[in-house]
């Protein structure tokens, strides 16, 4: 219980934010009901909804998180420009393949974030994670050494997340 306390607190805050944006009222009754429901839900799932967000309160971790989100948004826009010009070609240029890379992050949540980020970035989707290996599908395999290119791409995400999760 005490071990999960930061997770429960951060889950409650997030759930209460969702409650506020769904109801859009600021009556005292609604707010009290919202707090009760959010805290009960957060305790029931033991804070597994968000994990410990309170660690972002330290400045360097907060900056690392903002940096990650910025990096991710830029990559996502690049991915869409890439896929957009691919789709409208008369013959779609593809050279598909599934490549393995190593993932050193231990936390399950960090691994899920890396996998989801890779899915939304240029030319790559994550197929599966088995033990410490992540399998990535390329729509157009990079020229040169495929494995080291893939490893560099995974590390560019994982390295940024390590600062937040360690």
């Amino acid at each position: 219980m005490t071990k999960n306390l930061p997770s429960i607190v951060s889950s409650s805050i997030v759930l209460f934010g969702i409650w506020l944006s769904l109801t859009l009222t600021f009556d005292l009754q609604e707010i009290i009901l919202g707090v009760v429901v959010s805290v009960l839900t957060a305790v029931a799932v033991k804070g597994a909804l968000t994990g410990n967000l309170l660690r972002l309160l330290s400045p360097e971790k907060f900056l690392a998180a903002v940096g990650y989100v910025m990096f991710f948004l830029v990559q996502m826009v690049k991915a869409n420009i890439d896929i957009f010009f691919r789709i409208f070609r008369p013959v779609i240029p593809i050279r598909p393949g599934i490549v393995r890379a190593n993932i050193t992050l231990k936390s399950e949540r960090a691994r899920a974030i890396v996998a989801n980020s890779i899915t939304l970035t240029p030319g790559t989707i994550t197929i599966d994670i088995i033990d410490d290996e992540i399998f990535i599908h390329w729509v157009f395999l990079p020229s040169g050494d495929v494995h080291s290119e893939t490893q560099a791409m995974v590390d560019s995400f994982a390295g940024r997340l390590e600062k937040i999760f360690e």
Partner: peptide
């Protein structure tokens, strides 16, 4: 425009993984 591109991508791409590229990235940003 991006949502249209995702529909076109899902229609045109030859196999399931490549369809997924269009169906995931483009619909999200769209």
């Amino acid at each position: 425009l991006v949502l249209f591109a995702s529909g076109l991508g899902v229609f045109r791409m030859p196999d399931v993984f490549n369809k997924m590229h269009a169906g995931t990235k483009a619909t999200t940003l769209g």
